[in-house]
């Protein structure tokens, strides 16, 4: 489970891209594609390899004026799924 001090990193070979055919954002990895919604894209857009998970959720809470604990819970599950599937790493 990703912790507040963990720093999520998008690994080499994985990138976020707008898919014009499907008219939505996707996360591309070698031979694998995941479709994102706007909230998922917003979470991944905060990942810069320097910000911790806690910093990311604090920024999202400010942007969306939503409870930080709810954002942390949703984001933890979202990023955890990507980590399990090797679309994301933590350092």
């Amino acid at each position: 489970m990703i912790g507040a001090d963990d720093i999520p990193v998008i690994p080499r070979g994985v990138r976020m891209q707008f898919d014009r055919v499907r008219d939505r954002w996707v996360l591309l990895a070698p031979e694998r594609t995941v479709a994102l919604d706007e909230i998922g894209r917003a979470i991944l857009s905060e990942i810069d390899g320097a910000r911790s998970f806690g910093q990311i959720t604090a920024r999202l809470a400010a942007t969306y004026a939503a409870p930080e604990d709810q954002i942390a819970e949703d984001s933890r599950g979202f990023l955890g799924t990507l980590i399990d599937r090797r679309f994301l790493e933590v350092k």
Binding site: V34, Y64, R85
Partner: peptide, 24 residues
């Protein structure tokens, strides 16, 4: 507004729900 994010894996033209309100 903030909503629970969703992840759907696209495989062989099919979409598989990985995470989100309907993922169980």
């Amino acid at each position: 507004a903030w909503t629970k994010p969703t992840l759907r894996e696209i495989e062989c033209g099919m979409e598989i729900n990985m995470y989100g309100p309907d993922s169980g």
